[in-house]
């Protein structure tokens, strides 16, 4: 998968709809023999999907509040107390919408065969031969991939730039 299409796929995954050509290429959907009528023009951009995921993580776990705060002045235990909370809720929120799994399901540190899939899914590091190819190597990082993404549908009427609404309390 070329860099361009990888990005397209990633953001499309965030948005919940995978471009058909990429989906077919990776076997997510079966090629249909009956030609479908021309799909309506995509109304959402990849950025919309990215903002949606941010807004979910903010809504359910306040992750954006955490990332945007200047934490340099606080003691470690103050940060630690809050982070446990943010971590747990981010994890739950992420788990609800995105199933993440390793690219290579092996033991880190063990010698592992290089997968046959296209480059980009894995990269060779260290003393890489001139050919850029190797039968395998020590697994240093299993990698992550989104196995399933189930984001709620976006509505055209909503503010697609909104991450979290402001709150005004009536006393």
């Amino acid at each position: 998968m070329a860099i361009g299409s990888a990005f397209r796929a990633f953001f499309a995954l965030l948005g919940g709809n995978l471009p058909e050509d990429i989906a077919k290429e990776h076997g997510y959907i079966k090629a249909s023999s009956v030609p479908k009528p021309a799909p309506p023009k995509p109304t959402f951009t990849p950025a919309d999907g990215a903002v949606q995921l941010l807004s979910i993580l903010q809504r359910d776990a306040r992750l954006v509040d955490f990332l945007m705060e200047d934490i340099s002045a606080y003691e470690d235990d103050q940060i630690g107390a809050a982070v446990r909370n943010v971590h747990q809720q981010s994890r739950e929120a992420l788990g609800r919408y995105v199933s993440l799994g390793p690219v290579i399901d092996g033991v880190e540190g063990d010698f592992t065969k290089a997968p046959s899939s296209s480059a980009g899914d894995f990269k060779l590091i260290g003393n890489v031969p001139a050919s850029g190819k190797a039968p395998g190597g020590l697994l240093r990082h299993k990698g992550w991939k989104a196995e399933k993404i189930e984001l709620p549908p976006l509505a055209q009427s909503q503010n697609l730039k909104l991450v979290a609404p402001a709150e005004l309390e009536i006393e």
Binding site: R62, D65, F66, M68, E69, I71, Y74, D77, Q78, I79, A81, A82, R84, N85, V86
Partner: peptide, 18 residues
């Protein structure tokens, strides 16, 4: 069991009550 009340508003760490 720890109980953590995250800070009010956008200041999450600063206002955290433990």
């Amino acid at each position: 069991w720890p109980v953590t009340l995250l800070g009010k508003g956008t200041s999450l760490i600063g206002g955290t009550i433990k």
